[in-house]
Design a binder for these strands. Structure first.
Lengths: 225, 225
DNA sequence: ACAGTAGTTAATATCGATATTTTTTAAAAA
DNA sequence: TTTTTAAAAAATATCGATATTAACTACTGT
């Protein structure tokens, strides 16, 4: 059984449901669907070239995750955007990520420092290659994930990731703000320095400000857009 | 279309998938399945008297929620119990619920106080009716939900509920500890008093202790059981 | 006896068709 | 015109059957 898979098939072990789950999740976060929009299942079937059963399973997972609303007998909707919810998400991010940061500073070892430096470097390089937004987005996500990874709490990381996905829906829909964007980029480097020196107090303050600045940008998605 | 539904049908608008989701969720929290057990889908079909499609959708939701593990091409498993995860869950509960409590004390109004008193009363009455454990469980859950409800953060409440469900898996599997149980019951009443007086500092300390005591009980589920 | 392997069984994941429910459209009544 | 009602259309949810994958068993060779 050598090379029996067509080129378009994904890695072995991937099921159709899990593939369409990932694809749909990405598209939801990227804002490819209008907020509040009702998803037409038959249209999704064509779009993702997948049958009804795996598609519905993916939709159910996404609803349980909070990236879709599910209403009995009337299908799935993209959740609406609201400034109130964005505030909720942002404030909770500040609290949870600061919690995780504190623990990460205690638990993080040399290996972590290396990975953090690497992630930071990848992020700054991805910055310059304009036009490849998705690459930057991935590097950005990985940086923040690496920063908090050693915090030791599986559930805390899970919730933070979930909030991050929610937050990104807003941020990616908002118009770019080059001014704040530059400041945000600089903060990533500063966070690494503070992490290496384990200056938890300053780092917490900086991370909180980082989220607050991002929040300012993300707010742009709520203005009658 | 009057009374066209058979007696065993649930409220209108309920779909087969959502019904089996609720039933399965309850059974998982109640420990009706062995930890680590692989779920035989065909057996579940008979047990819940439901077809394959709605059953699989329910399983997918539960996996996304964290009450099941899903492995591609090899079905669904009940997550194993571990003392480490219980510690993670418990510590996070302390932090998140104390956060919510603080905000609830600020936002809570007279209506909240009334509902809290009512919930507390129901809980103490449910206590005495032995043999009706499920009734007490429901009253208990509602009490804790009411206590934190006015905190104003949709996502915080969501995460707390999720952790609560995880925690209860352990607690309900653990052998009963009448000694601690009495103390826990007493704490519910004390929490109400502190809430009415908005004594946030004492209340936080008490809630933290409440969770810690429950944790002690829940640990019993991890011992080679 | 043991490791490796083909063949068999059982389970999962998916497809195609159908039944139910909601939404839309059109007609009838106030 | 507005509201109600009824019929038609569209969409969701579910069923039954099938294909695909993993787990198991018996065999072969060493």
């Amino acid at each position: 059984m050598i090379n029996s898979q067509p080129a378009e098939m994904a890695a072995s072990g991937e099921t159709a449901a899990s593939q369409v789950f990932s694809a749909l999740k990405q598209d939801l976060i990227r804002g490819r669907f209008a907020a509040g929009e009702k998803l037409a299942i038959s249209a999704l079937k064509e779009r993702y070239e997948v049958g009804l059963s795996p598609l519905r399973e993916a939709l159910n997972r996404l609803a349980a995750y909070g990236l879709l609303e599910q209403h009995n007998q009337r299908g799935f909707r993209v959740p609406p955007l609201s400034a109130e919810e964005l505030e909720d998400i942002s404030r909770l991010r500040m609290q949870l990520e600061c919690m995780a940061l504190t623990q990460a500073f205690q638990e993080g070892d040399a290996e972590w420092e290396s990975q953090l430096l690497a992630a930071s470097h990848r992020l700054s390089r991805a910055n310059k290659a304009q036009g490849e937004i998705e690459q930057w987005e991935q590097a950005h996500q990985r940086f923040h994930r690496t920063l908090l990874a050693p915090c030791g709490s599986h559930w805390l990381l899970r919730f933070i990731e979930q909030l991050h996905d929610q937050f990104d829906r807003y941020r990616r829909l908002a118009p770019g703000n080059p001014e704040i964007r530059d400041r945000l980029d600089a903060q990533h480097g500063e966070l690494v320095e503070l992490a290496l020196d384990r200056r938890i107090h300053d780092a917490r303050y900086l991370l909180e400000d980082h989220i607050r600045q991002s929040w300012e940008v993300a707010k742009g998605a709520c203005e009658q857009g």
